[in-house]
C-alpha cells in the first residue's frame, strides 16, 4: 500500500508539470494583460512595470523562471494586480476559509446522507422513504445558487438567526449556511445512492447466506451489508470531495467568505497571471491528493481492489 502511494505520488509530478505549462500558455493566449486598462499607460512607465515583473522577457524564459522559483523556493510569485501581496499570501488567507466550510460541508453530506439512505432502504416505500425521495428531488430543483439566497431570506432576513455573509474568523454561525448550501444537493445524491446500493446488497446471495447461518440481524447489517453498500458512495464522493474542499466560486462570492473562489474570479478579471496559475496548481494537487485518498479508502474496504494494488 505504501509502495502504491509512493508510485502514485511520483507519477503525478510530470502531470502537474504539463498542467503548469498548458495553463501558462493558455493564459497568455487570452487578449489583454494585467496592466492593460481603458487609459493606456505611457510607454516608458509600461516598459518599467513590465520589466519589474519580468514580463519583458521571452515567454519561455518567463516560464522557466516561474518553474525555478516554485521548485527551489516554493515561491509562486507576486500578484500582478494586488501590490504588496504574493500568491502564497493570497492562498494562505483564502484557502483555510474554503477548506473549513468545505470540510464541514463534506461532514454534513456524509453524516446525514448515509443514515438517510439507510433508513429509506430499510423502510422501503414508507413515509420516510418518500420524504427522502422528495428531498432528493427538491435539492435537484434548488441548486446552491437558488438555495443560498433562499436560506439568507429565511434565516437572516426573516428569522435573524444567522449572519448573511462574512467569515469572522470561521465562527460557527458564519460556517453553517455556506456549508449547508454547498452540500445539500450532494447530500440528496448520497442518500439516493446509499438507498439503492443498500437495497441491492440486501437482495444479494451473500446476505441470504448470512441469514441462513442464523446471524443476528444487527450483525448482518453492520458486518455484511455496510461495507459493500458504501463502495458506490465512495466512488461518487471522489470528485465531490475535491469540489467541496476547493470550495465553490458561487458560495465564496455570495456569502463574501473571503475564500479562494473569490480570488480566482478576481484574478481572472484582472489577468492576474500568477494568481490564476497558483490556484490552478493548488486545485490540481488537491485533486490528486483527494483522489488518492478515495482510492486508498476503496482499497481498505474492498479486498479485490487491495490485491489489485500490489
Amino acid at each position: 500500500m505504501l509502495q502504491y502511494t509512493f508510485r502514485r505520488t511520483i507519477a503525478v509530478l510530470p502531470t502537474i508539470l504539463c498542467l503548469i505549462v498548458i495553463c501558462f500558455f493558455l493564459m497568455r493566449l487570452a487578449p489583454g494583460g494585467p496592466f492593460t486598462s481603458e487609459r493606456p499607460l505611457p510607454p516608458a512607465i509600461m516598459a518599467n512595470v513590465l520589466e519589474r515583473y519580468g514580463l519583458d522577457q521571452p515567454l519561455y524564459v518567463q516560464l522557466f523562471t516561474y518553474l525555478k522559483n516554485i521548485f527551489f523556493n516554493f515561491d509562486f510569485g507576486p500578484s500582478f494586480a494586488q501590490r504588496d501581496r504574493d500568491v502564497n499570501d493570497i492562498i494562505a488567507a483564502g484557502f483555510p476559509v474554503t477548506l473549513t466550510y468545505g470540510f464541514w460541508s463534506a461532514v454534513f453530506v456524509l453524516v446525514l446522507g448515509i443514515p438517510l439512505g439507510v433508513i429509506a432502504a430499510l423502510r422501503q416505500n414508507s413515509f420516510w422513504d418518500y420524504v427522502m425521495t422528495g428531498f432528493a428531488i427538491f435539492s435537484q430543483i434548488f441548486p446552491n445558487f437558488v438555495l443560498a439566497p433562499l436560506m439568507v431570506l429565511t434565516f437572516t432576513l426573516a428569522l435573524g438567526l444567522l449572519p448573511g455573509g462574512g467569515w469572522n474568523g470561521g465562527q460557527w454561525e458564519y460556517v453553517v449556511m455556506p456549508a449547508v448550501a454547498l452540500g445539500t444537493s450532494y447530500l440528496a445524491n448520497v442518500a439516493r445512492i446509499t438507498r439503492s446500493s443498500l437495497l441491492e446488497v440486501l437482495g444479494s446471495p451473500y446476505i441470504r447466506t448470512a441469514r441462513a447461518k442464523g446471524l443476528p440481524e444487527r450483525t448482518i447489517m453492520i458486518r455484511h451489508a455496510l461495507k459493500p453498500t458504501l463502495l458506490p458512495v465512495i466512488s461518487y464522493m471522489s470528485p465531490v470531495f475535491v469540489y467541496m474542499i476547493t470550495g465553490s466560486v458561487f458560495i465564496d462570492v455570495f456569502f463574501s467568505t473571503g475564500g479562494i473562489g473569490q480570488s480566482f474570479i478576481d484574478a481572472a478579471y484582472t489577468r492576474d497571471y500568477s494568481v490564476i496559475l497558483g490556484l490552478a496548481i493548488l486545485y490540481s494537487v488537491l485533486t490528486f491528493v483527494l483522489n488518492l485518498a478515495v482510492d486508498l479508502a476503496y482499497a481498505a474496504i474492498d479486498p479485490k481492489v487491495r490485491s489489485g494494488l500490489k
Binding site: R208, T219, I301
Partner: peptide, 29 residues
C-alpha cells in the same frame, strides 16, 4: 438456522461475502 438446519446455495461465486475472509465468515457462524 445454520445450527440444526444448514443451507448450501447455488453459486459459490456470490454466496460468500466478498469483503470478509473465509475465516471471519466461518468463525462468526
Amino acid at each position: 438456522r445454520g445450527n440444526r438446519m444448514a443451507m448450501i446455495f447455488q453459486d459459490p461465486m456470490v454466496t460468500l461475502n466478498p469483503v470478509l475472509t473465509i475465516g471471519q465468515q466461518m468463525v462468526e457462524t
